[in-house]
Nucleic acid binder design. Structure first.
Ligand SMILES: [Zn+2]
Ligand SMILES: [Zn+2]
Ligand SMILES: [Zn+2]
Ligand SMILES: [Zn+2]
Lengths: 130, 130
DNA sequence: TTAAATATGTTATATTATTACATAGCGTTA
DNA sequence: TAACGCTATGTAATAATATAACATATTTAA
């Protein structure tokens, strides 16, 4: 299982931090928080983030340039993500909807594209913000 | 029809440029190109881009920080976008798939979110790059 | 045990986007 | 007309996001 890959020191530090937050964190806010642990430079953060994204431990919220932990232990698929984003309070939730995922996985365009990944972001207002 | 809204000088210059390209353009590449037309500062570009996005004339490709013209005259919906992106040649195509759009439009989560927008990006390899 | 691949640390720099402030134009309406 | 609200403009400065380049260390695998 790819997700149990052993992580390096920096990767662990940064994953820990992201997993403790239920909301997306930005790279430079992560950098600020891990300086006390000896991570000093943006590149150290970005390298860890890129790796963690690649192995599916975290996802990037593209519209927000922020990173959130994947809470779904069953989700092997680092490359098929659906998020719900409240445009008022900025609350982000990962969506796991079997039917929708299936629909997206099975999607074929008419140009012969060979897909291996997708990212879907829904925007709106959450219950609290309506 | 919102799309026929009259545009200002800067907005027209920048929309023209984007419409002439069949591929997404980046803000600072746009800035470079429109300097000869008297647009000198990033903010002038970003202001026009934001407006054009808002009225649906162009879309932002979030994963690429780039902007592409909406070619679909029938598409009133500036806030429901689907793109296909080749990760090798970076070719981007807007997808208009009725069934998929319907599915996304009708999607309801179980948290009571009220959606008003979505953006979906498919990644893979195009015919030429496979 | 050597070579390849991966990770680290550090500095500098590139790229993307916004803040802040001053000014101008345009449509409404008092 | 005059005053107001709204939108757009121009300009300078700066913030926020991300990568290049280089030297070194560590892990993995042949
Ligand atoms: Zn996930
Ligand atoms: Zn909310
Ligand atoms: Zn469109
Ligand atoms: Zn291609």
């Amino acid at each position: 299982m790819q997700k149990q890959e052993t992580l390096t020191k920096n990767q662990k530090i940064i994953l820990d931090l992201i997993e403790k937050s239920d909301q997306p964190l930005k790279a430079y806010s992560i950098l600020f928080d891990v300086k006390k642990k000896g991570i000093n430079a943006p590149l150290q953060v970005y390298r860890a983030l890129n790796k963690l994204v690649k192995i599916g431990k975290i996802h990037k919220i593209e519209s927000r340039n922020a990173f959130i932990a994947c809470k779904n232990s069953k989700c092997q698929i680092a490359n098929a993500t659906i998020f719900s984003i409240c445009e008022s309070c900025e609350d982000v939730t990962e969506i796991h909807d079997h039917k929708l995922s299936e629909h997206l996985r099975d999607f074929k365009d008419n140009k012969g594209m060979k897909y291996n990944k997708y990212n879907l972001e829904f925007f709106g207002l959450c219950k609290k913000c309506v």
